[in-house]
Write a protein that binds this DNA or RNA. Structure first.
Lengths: 136, 136
DNA sequence: CTTTGTGCAAAGGCTTTGCATGCTT
DNA sequence: AAGCATGCAAAGCCTTTGCACAAAG
């Protein structure tokens, strides 16, 4: 070894990563890797699909992005406001509301205790019909 | 028309459908179409994979089966005990506990009201580590 | 200079679909 | 006899992976 580096390194700064980050930050709601890629292409970007997949995964793994699975089974990403929260998503127009449900967190802890489970993840997303769409 | 039938018809009774129903009823926990198909084959059944997929979908659509999406994005099926409830699933050993969480139901109604949403589905499944697996 | 990221295309895995045949009604 | 159900294989879709090249540190 010519040098000993003790810093965790982290992902490199590349044009592609920057573009992807920007694209994700512009999202109004969740979007899949393919949707994000499409959108970028329309905006003139030439970043490859595989890179988008890899980068989104990496960002989600690093906690910079939240990933959920939509009702069709695809993985969708979104930048999240800091802190733990959930989403209330309209099945019809995809409108999304971020909700914090402290009672749910308590509930989960209670559940865990009652059944001897630990490290319970709850990627809880609520899908429903929003007022506007119900009106039609 | 030679005859006018007013009954909704419904799925036909076939050997395959019966076999699939039986297989699903024997499940201890959720299983995907492929897993169910494999299991049936090992038990000597020659039912085709496509038929298993189609039949499970049909049964789930008819409310005879509950379907969830597992963490890998595959659709998993299970016969459910009557009444609304959720599942607490061990990520390691797949052990599943059925839990009723009345407070959650209340919470959901509250959420809906607060944000003008209606018909909120909450396919809420909790994934965690059960006591046995945590002990190792 | 070394290592990680990117692109492209191919491969993979799960699920759906087309079509001819068989079975239910 | 008429029509849905089944099987098989092919097609589809989303996602991952292999490999050579480019770029970052």
């Amino acid at each position: 070894m010519t040098s000993t580096d003790l810093t965790p390194a982290g992902p490199r700064q590349t044009r592609q990563r920057a573009e992807i980050r920007r694209a994700v930050e512009e999202l109004a709601s969740f979007a899949t890797a393919q949707e994000i890629h499409d959108r970028m292409r329309h905006n003139g970007s030439g970043v490859g699909l595989a890179t988008v997949y890899r980068t989104l995964q990496s960002m989600a793994g690093g906690g910079q992005l939240d990933s959920i699975r939509n009702p069709d089974g695809q993985v969708a990403y979104r930048t999240c406001s800091p802190g733990h929260h959930h989403h209330l998503i309209c099945r019809t127009c995809a409108r999304t509301v971020e909700v914090t449900v402290p009672q749910l967190e308590q509930l989960v802890r209670g559940l865990a205790a009652d059944h001897g489970f630990s490290r319970i993840d709850h990627e809880v997303e609520f899908f429903g019909t929003c007022a506007d769409c119900a009106a039609r």
